[in-house]
Amino acid sequence: MKTYLKITAVAAMIWVIPMAFLGEVSVQPILHETIRNLYWHVTMWFAMFILLLASVVHGIAYLRHNNPIRDEKSLALTQVALLYGGIGIVTGMIWARFTWDTFWTKDPQLNGAAITILAYLAYMVLRASIPDARKRAEISAVYGIFAFVLMVVLIVVLPRMQDVDSLHPGKGGNPGFGNYKDLKNDMRLVFYPAILAWTLLGFWLANLSFRIQHLNRTSHAQH
């Protein structure tokens, strides 16, 4: 990973983390101060989605050129995306407890996210069940592409169908965050850098994880 991207990630985090706790936020009924979770919870999903997209791109590249490095990168990105998904679920549950008064609801977006995580856990099981490295790379790339496309349908298309009741902002008749009159640009100035920060951090984590796993594999091969 390029150094300037790491510097950008750190700089963005230095801006985002204090601002997320101390910055001006929109005053809304029910939400109150929990609106700050926007910077943690919502950005986790954005970052997870981008990481999974990158993982699929590596999967496609693997199928085209059969370069095992691509498979290792794809795996590392998926692992970090799963970690982000777990954090996204937990932060979402805490938020839901304080605004919707329950940890878990029938919300389509919530359940879509949970199912995505299940599908990618199945991806891990699939990988673990194939001893041969080349076959494992091929099959898991195919499954990864298949799952990703269907998950896009699940998370992006289904919850946006007009009649779906969602508690999430911008759906099911709820106002979106963009409609809050006093939101102006203050929150966006933290929200967008937060997406950038967590996404870059995710790529950084994935890169480190890939390098460790790659070293492990190649050093085992030599002995």
């Binding site: 599908a119 199945a122 099981v125 699939l126 194939i130 099959i139 298949f146 799952a147 699940l154």
Partner: peptide, 26 residues
């Protein structure tokens, strides 16, 4: 997928069920 990976039909249920959820929801 389960068959080429050398696994039995048990794995295809684990792999398939999460992916069938969009279908189920619709």
């Amino acid at each position: 997928v389960a068959s080429v990976s050398g696994n039995g039909p048990g794995l295809s249920a684990i792999l398939g069920l999460p992916l069938m959820v969009p279908t189920l929801m619709a």
